[in-house]
Simulated assay, not measured.
Amino acid sequence: MAGIFRFKQFNVDQSGCTMKINTDGVLLGALAGEGQPSTILDIGTGTGVIALMLAQRFTSAQIDAVEIDSNAAETAQLNFEASPFKDRLTAYHQDFNTFFTLHPEKRYDLIISNPPFYIDSLLSPQKEKNIAKHAGRDFFNGLMEIMFKQLTVGGQCWLVLPVNTASWVKNIAIGFGLYLQKIVKIKSFEDLEPHREIVVFGMEVGDVLTSSFIIYSSIGKYSTAYNQLLQPFFITL
């Protein structure tokens, strides 16, 4: 069926979503989290693919997913209900501020987001694409504040961002009591500069662990690291 992306343990219908499954999202879904988080929040879930990947990886975790776009939120919930993890996944058609106004008691071991990241750039004439791809600076201030308030002790938040945006977000995180713990620099090829960073924040101060992740070994050929990371999910690997 058109619009269906098939994984080894679940399927994702993305026909109702402006933002389709992308490399940023699947890398975050495969890398995010340490230990065995029991509560997870996905902010801006879109199709729900990251939440589904985390449900596959962390077999006891309860996962909430918030999404401001009504079509995407409905699609994510349908994808959750069609998965083998349906009892542990819930989608909410809300922005994260509304969600925590209604659920102030919720705390999470892991908060993740593949957020809209084109700050102060030219907006698309299509409203849905603006919501999915663009964010003002206030968005990231609010996101950092919410993460500090709603993380459990020892909890972490993981974001995937363009390098320039990541640099700015690192600075504002400190102002909200969140400390950089890990950076994964994502490159298309070994000899290129990073185009994305996965940044990890928590409330514990320590050394920042930095690593690189290379997507391609040559043109049209995925790297060994990429194949090994996504092998548990992609049917073609």
Rank of each mutant, 00 (worst) to 15 (best):
I235N: 11
Q181M: 14
T45P: 08
A76I: 13
T18F: 10
D120Q: 12
I4K: 10
A76T: 10
S212T: 12
Q94M: 14
F85N: 06
K20I: 01
G44A: 06
L28A: 00
T47R: 03
G206L: 07
Y179C: 11
K106H: 13
S70C: 12
L237T: 14
T59Q: 09
G35C: 08
P84K: 07
Y179D: 10
G48Y: 02
M19F: 07
C157F: 01
Y118H: 05
S60L: 04
K8T: 08
F233E: 01
I131W: 02
N164E: 13
F80I: 06
N141P: 00
S167I: 13
A72F: 01
F85Y: 15
L159W: 01
D207C: 11
I50C: 04
M19N: 08
L161T: 01
Q126Y: 13
F201G: 08
T98H: 13
L230W: 11
D109Q: 15
S121D: 09
Y108L: 13
S218C: 05
M144F: 05
P125N: 09
S60V: 09
P84M: 07
G206M: 14
M147K: 01
G136A: 12
N227F: 00
G154M: 10
I183P: 01
C157I: 12
W168A: 07
H93V: 06
Q150M: 04
G16Y: 05
F189K: 15
Q62H: 06
K149Q: 15
K133W: 10
D207K: 11
S124H: 07
E67D: 12
K129N: 15
T39M: 08
A65N: 02
K187I: 11
D13E: 13
S211N: 11
C17G: 08
